[in-house]
């Protein structure tokens, strides 16, 4: 007898019941959109762009209020890290210019093999966090595999299996208070980037207004 095939688990939209990829042909795509942004953003990259465009207008006002530009990570840094913001330039032997590392945590979401997703966390070490310890905590908290690996520039980073990008900010700031949420950046795409900064800003600063 042939090997038992494992049933495929299809992501069905909880609004219209169709497989998420068919929402655009469903009875009411508009209603599905918020659910899709949250649960299947990789299927509809344009939705994020749309959300971003709408929110970018709102956020630019807020960003200016904090003396930040809306140009993404380069402009948006918190008060704590602003001292290290001026780029210190160091000349390496051979005349190459090395930028001093900015103290920030970067969360990257990488989709491998179509639907398998990995969340990469870079820069926790810059806040004095021991990476092996952080990797264990992340793996435990999100009940998934996490490991410290060398990234493309030989710098160590933490690879976490699965998409945890929606809950990770809170977990990092709760676990390591030295890392404040404004020094956490998302880079799964530049479009999403601004949107996430806006989200972070909103969550952090709305109580002030």
């Amino acid at each position: 007898m042939a090997e038992k095939p494992q049933p495929v688990r299809v992501l069905y939209c909880s609004i219209c019941s169709l497989p998420a990829e068919y929402c655009e042909f469903g009875p009411d795509f508009e209603k599905c959109k918020p659910w899709l942004i949250k649960n299947a953003p990789e299927l509809y990259p344009d939705l994020l762009k749309e959300a971003n465009e709408k929110e970018a207008e709102k956020v630019s006002g807020q960003l200016q209020l904090f003396g930040l530009s809306s140009g993404g990570a380069d402009g948006a840094t918190s008060g704590q890290t602003s001292s290290s913001k001026q780029e210190e330039v160091k000349r390496l032997p051979g005349g190459k210019i090395k930028k001093k590392e900015r103290q920030e945590v970067v969360i990257e979401k990488v989709v491998r093999n179509k639907r398998k997703c990995i969340t990469i966390v870079k820069g926790l070490d810059l806040f004095g966090v021991k990476l092996s310890d952080a990797s264990k905590k992340l793996g435990k908290k999100f009940a998934t595999g996490a490991s410290v690996v060398k990234g493309p520039t030989e710098k160590e980073q933490i690879d976490v299996q699965g998409d945890i990008s929606y809950d990770i900010v809170e977990f990092i700031t709760d676990t390591w208070p030295a890392v404040i949420s404004l020094s956490i950046f998302f880079s799964f795409s530049c479009v999403l980037h601004k949107w996430c900064i806006w989200k972070t800003l909103k969550e952090d600063f709305v109580p002030l207004f």
Binding site: P5, P7, V8, R9, V10, P19, Y22, F25
Partner: peptide, 22 residues
């Protein structure tokens, strides 16, 4: 079928046909 997608032979329609099929 979604759970066991390989049990049937497959024919594929172009994107333009999706809304008519649905």
């Amino acid at each position: 079928l979604h759970q066991y997608p390989n049990i049937m032979k497959k024919l594929q329609v172009d994107r333009g046909a999706i809304k008519f099929v649905l």
